[in-house]
Amino acid sequence: MTTRRDAVRLMGLLLLPGALRAQDQGEATPVAGLDDADRLYSPEWAGRNRDTLTALDNDPLVIATERRMRCTCGCTLDIYTCRTTDFTCTFSPALHKEVIALWVEGKTPEEIIDFFVAREGEAILMAPPAEGFNVAGYVVPGLVMLTGALGLAAWISRRKAEVAAVEITAAPVATTPDEAARERLRRALDDVES
């Protein structure tokens, strides 16, 4: 006679391979609870609560302003990128709210940025303003490249002149017609092999 316990065991045996396979492959095991259509079964799984978006959240000028300032959480991202990327950050949403508040007050992007620089220091800017010592930051790489290019051009010209001088003085002594032909051939082969 089959007892209820046997029936459960039988069901277990039948279901076990599928269950193990699902576990091996990392397949989803649905959780009941979404019957309540408008609420998540477990809101905390979905991360921090999001504020309701407004049109200003996507305003190009607000975004451009936020892109010029760094989030103060230490992530090295700008405010806009941080608030739309790192959804665990509490700093960038707060900074965003401040930007929006200043915007609503009628401040221009420059005035908003000046406000934050006055409060947080120059470090809040994603790139230092090109003034004072910061000019060196922008100019030095270009200057180094320019100096390098001019130096390289001068060096090549000097070497070229030296080679030409050596060729002029050495040619009558060292080169026979056969050698010259061989040298031309060698150069041609060099060019071809390059």
């Binding site: 090295t76 120059e122 809040i124 994603m126 790139a127 230092p128 010592f133 910061n134 930051g137 922008y138």
Partner: peptide
């Protein structure tokens, strides 16, 4: 370098690197 020279912290982010 900037902090050593001016004593002020600055950030050098993508706008700087892209420009240069």
């Amino acid at each position: 370098i900037s902090e050593a020279v001016r004593g002020t912290k600055i950030t050098v982010g993508p706008p700087f690197f892209n420009r240069v």
